[in-house]
Simulated scan of single mutants.
Amino acid sequence: MANYSLQEKEGFVVLGFGIEIVADYRDQESINQQKSDFWETVKKDGTLEQLKSVADNNYIFAVNEAVNNKMMHYAGVMTEKTLPDATRIIQFPKGPYLVVEGKADSAQELSNQLTAVAFGQALVEMTDYAYVGGPNTTVEMSEDNGTVYGEMWIPVVKK
């Protein structure tokens, strides 16, 4: 069984810079490549450092959200502040969340691993709760000697 739990969370806001994922939603390899390219860019061009400068904590958020029938992906931080060029202010609701914990050798590997467990196993095994859409996020919480630790947070509703 995967390392996951159901947790109650307060509502929170993530400020993000993002892109539209243009790959077919069934083409996981292309989706992962677009996300990887995006993260490489935001790390190199200073966007991630700009976000960190207004963050409430050290967490880095990789948010997935459907907006106007488009698959969007954001690099973000938890904050009530804003930046002039930010793409979106993402509202996460108060309520129950599926939380999947993990560790990996890179943030991208962590995100891929947590997503696979969350959508391929945990949500399937949960019988009393369901994901009905809305933003979901991988949260990079810490790094130690090349190992990245984090969680995936998915808002769920009681069936």
Rank of each mutant, 00 (worst) to 15 (best):
N58E: 09
A2E: 15
V157G: 11
F17Y: 15
N64A: 06
F12S: 06
M78K: 11
R26F: 10
M78H: 04
R26W: 08
I31N: 11
A2I: 07
M152R: 09
D45R: 10
K81I: 00
N57M: 04
I90N: 12
E125H: 03
L110W: 07
L83M: 09
V67Y: 08
K94E: 14
P93I: 03
V22S: 10
N57L: 05
Y97P: 05
Y97M: 09
D85Y: 06
S53A: 13
N57H: 06
D128G: 03
N57E: 08
Q50A: 15
K94W: 00
E125G: 04
V148W: 06
Q50V: 06
D144V: 00
P96N: 09
A62I: 01
L51T: 04
G95H: 00
G46V: 04
M152S: 11
F61A: 06
E80C: 01
N57C: 08
L51Q: 08
P93M: 05
Y59C: 05
A23L: 03
I89E: 14
I60L: 14
S30R: 14
I21K: 11
V156L: 07
N136H: 15
N57I: 03
L48T: 04
N145G: 02
M72V: 00
F17A: 04
M126G: 08
T82H: 11
V67F: 05
Y25H: 12
K44V: 02
Y74R: 07
A75Q: 10
M126T: 12
G95D: 03
G76R: 00
Q50K: 15
F119N: 02
V117H: 07
A2F: 11
Q7I: 02
T138R: 02
V99D: 10
E80K: 12
V100R: 12
V100I: 14
G16P: 04
V77P: 05
E151F: 00
K103S: 15
A104W: 01
A66R: 13
G102D: 10
K35Y: 00
D144G: 00
A104K: 01
E140R: 12
V42Y: 12
E40N: 15
V42G: 15
A55P: 09
G146C: 11
K52Y: 01
Q121P: 02
T137D: 13
M141V: 10
I90R: 12
K44T: 09
D85I: 01
I154Y: 05
